[in-house]
């Protein structure tokens, strides 16, 4: 577990019980106030390449500059990766399904400022005042059905292809990132995770885990709970606590 200043964090990824490959990746950088989860697009060749490129590139971003500069740096880096994965990859004639992409959710923190940047269905949760808030809104067909056709979550989940992403790094020529800035309070806990983790767990289970005092304990609880289930997908979580 990493401890820096007043931020402690813990991170883990697991292939799950079914998949042979782990296409998730994380970055845990408490010294830089930066944490990332990326989930390579399943079914496509090289999903792990995409998620690994994201965490490796974000890890190399310059440390100098103020919060706003660094936030711009993260966004610029993700736009570049979108181009690199979408337009610059060499395609083998035998493999036409050559879309390589990944979700991303990144959390940047400095003193009492935080910014969450995301594309896709990897999520950022905030545990504050004994309540769980989902800070990121999924870029998925499911979420689109809820927003645009007023379906409830259960109906949307039953929709065939509801898991399909509407945004991801590398998926389309233009990437639109979503950014949420917020003020951080003492006692806040954050969770970044891939869908493989949150899909097997109720909000109550997420909340209970995040209420634990240490990130490592929260992480253990999350994985113990998730791995008791089917764990069909890769699962990744990063817990950050003040």
């Amino acid at each position: 577990m990493a401890v820096v200043g007043h931020w402690r964090s813990a991170a883990r990824t697991h292939a799950g019980k079914v998949r042979e490959r782990n296409e998730d990746a994380f970055l845990e950088c408490p010294e830089q106030g930066l944490w990332v989860v990326a989930d390579g697009m399943g079914g496509h060749q090289g999903g792990d390449i995409a998620s690994q490129m994201i965490v490796a590139s974000l890890a190399e971003l310059p440390l100098h500059g103020n919060f706003d500069d660094r936030l711009i740096g993260i966004r610029r880096c993700l736009h570049w990766l979108n181009r690199r994965l979408g337009q610059e990859l060499t395609v083998n004639a035998g493999r036409q399904d050559s879309i390589i992409g990944s979700t991303v959710v990144a959390l940047l923190m400095e003193e009492n400022r935080a910014a969450c940047v995301w594309a896709g269905d990897s999520r950022c949760y905030l545990w504050r005042g004994q309540r769980l808030y989902q800070l990121s809104r999924d870029h998925s067909l499911q979420q689109q059905l809820i927003d645009e056709r007023q379906m409830n979550a259960r109906q949307a989940r039953a929709h065939p292809g509801g898991h399909a992403l509407t945004r991801a790094v590398g998926a389309a020529e233009q990437l639109t990132l979503e950014v949420l800035e917020l003020e951080v309070f003492a006692g806040d806990a954050f969770l970044l995770c891939s869908d493989g983790l949150y899909q097997g767990l109720s909000s109550d289970a997420l909340g209970h885990a995040l209420s634990l005092a240490l990130p490592a304990m929260a992480l253990k609880r999350l994985f113990d709970d998730a791995l008791r289930g089917a764990a069909r997908d890769n699962l990744t979580a990063v817990v950050i606590r003040g």
Partner: peptide, 11 residues
């Protein structure tokens, strides 16, 4: 040494 911790590339 880099302070960052990255998940290992599974591929």
């Amino acid at each position: 040494r880099e302070p960052a911790r990255l998940s290992a590339p599974s591929a």
